[in-house]
Every structure is written in C-alpha cells, then in structure tokens.
Amino acid sequence: MAHGQHANDAHSEHHIIPFGVYMKVFSALIALTVITVLAARVDFGAFGAAVAFGIATVKAVLVLAYFMHLKYDNMLNRVIIASGVFFLIVFYFFCIVDEITRIVEKNTL
C-alpha cells in the first residue's frame, strides 16, 4: 500500500508497446472467440459454463495486460482492478452459498 514518495513513480510510465504485439494479441483474441464458439458445441456437461467462462477470462486478461497496458503499468493500478474483481467474487460467493444451501421446494423449471 505504501509506496513512498510520489516523485519516485513518475518515470518509466510512457512505455510504447510495439505494433507487432498489438497484432499478435488481436489474433489471439479472435482465435479465442472461435474457440469459444466451437467449445459451445461440445457437450462438457456441467462444466460447459465453466469452460466458456475460463476462455472469456483468458481473453479478458489479454485485453487488460496489453490493450490496457497493465503489464507495463505500476503495481497499484493492478491492485485496484484486482480488488474490484476480488470483492465481486465475495459478492458472488455469499449469494451463491445462500442460494445453494437454502431449503425450498424445488421449482420444476
């Protein structure tokens, strides 16, 4: 949390990512989109959603790291976005715990 004097973190911010890297990342994203569509046709049973979600997360990480420059950014900005994701998971976790363990008459739908 404490990262000392702000004069220190001023430099090395303006990193220019090479053109080629952008192109590679873009190709990877398109490839992953194709994989998402193909994966949806395979029956993974209960894991279908997890597979789709996993591929989406890989894509998200690529966008965050390269298009949004997080790979070259300072630690704090990564922590900020990670904390958002973390507390979202907390939110999800307790809601789903309640839902799974609730004793209700199961709807037939």
Binding site: F94, V97, D98, E99, I100, T101, R102, I103
Partner: peptide, 14 residues
C-alpha cells in the same frame, strides 16, 4: 452483510 437478513429466508448456512 447477511446479518441483516437472518429472518429473511436466507439459508441457515449463510
């Protein structure tokens, strides 16, 4: 936050 919901129908585990 669930301590506001003990009587709401929230599950006992939660």
């Amino acid at each position: 936050w669930g301590h506001h919901m003990f009587t709401s129908g929230q599950s006992e585990v939660a």
